[in-house]
């Protein structure tokens, strides 16, 4: 534990990367997941099939392989993140970070899509029928009536998905992002005798993040629950 306390800066910076990965991929995954669910329940058969195939494939692929895809496969088809070169304070967001964000959001959005689809199914039938009866087209039915309710119904599973995302950011360590798990391994390598303390210190960091999100989700759910 002392090793971590003596170098609290490194610890906090590592969790800064974890947090940045989580926030950016979390937002992106919500947006992409919403698009996917609109495709999946929409009237265009080709899009429906494409979205279903994508979701089924990616959901069943281990995240490590999705990361490997962006590390080794994507460069071959000219998808690179070399354009990403942002430096804020002591944080450097470069190629590896971009690839990590892309992997995490493209992986997580499939779970967001499934959560939302369950949410759409939870909206009472009459809502969509009434919306159609007043003449709304598919886009109107979705954006004005169904999705707002679906989001509320889907809040608990969406929260689980986002909590899983916090923990999934750790996989970025395997692909060279200096986030918490990578930092923990560095600490453990240099201070092998303090292994347990270091482990607990980093576990606590994750637990704090998870509990904050879970608390916020519980509050939001209570507040926005459909009566």
């Amino acid at each position: 534990m002392n090793a971590v306390l003596d170098d609290l800066d490194a610890y906090l910076q590592a969790f800064g990367y974890t947090l940045a990965l989580f926030v950016i991929s979390g937002l992106l995954s919500l947006v992409l997941g919403t698009v996917l669910v609109a495709m999946r329940v929409g009237p265009v058969a080709v899009l429906r099939a494409a979205a279903t195939t994508y979701v089924t494939t990616v959901r069943n692929t281990p995240l490590v392989i999705v990361f490997a895809f962006f590390a080794f496969f994507a460069p071959i088809i000219n998808i690179r993140f070399t354009w990403l070169d942002v430096h804020i304070g002591r944080f450097d967001f470069t190629e590896l970070f971009g690839a990590a964000v892309a992997s995490l959001s493209l992986y997580t959005c499939t779970f967001v899509c499934e959560a939302l689809r369950a949410g759409v199914n939870a909206v009472p039938l009459g809502q969509a029928e009434a919306a159609r009866a007043i003449g709304l087209p598919f886009g109107g039915v979705m954006t004005n009536v169904v999705l707002p309710q679906a989001f509320r119904a889907a809040l608990p599973p969406l929260a689980s998905v986002q909590i899983a995302l916090i923990k999934n950011t750790s996989v970025a360590a395997v692909f060279g992002v200096a986030e918490a798990v990578a930092q923990m391994r560095t600490f453990t390598n240099s201070f092998a005798s303090q292994r347990l303390g270091i482990f607990i210190a980093f576990a606590i960091g994750y637990i704090v993040l998870v509990e904050v999100v879970s608390f916020a989700a519980a509050r939001a759910e209570r507040r926005w629950r459909i009566a």
């Binding site: 779970f111 899983a164 879970s214 519980a218």
Partner: peptide, 17 residues
Amino acid sequence: LTRVGNQQGGENTGGAA
């Protein structure tokens, strides 16, 4: 299971690396 505990259930929510 989505309402279990701190809202993580046994659902496949994206693994838990």
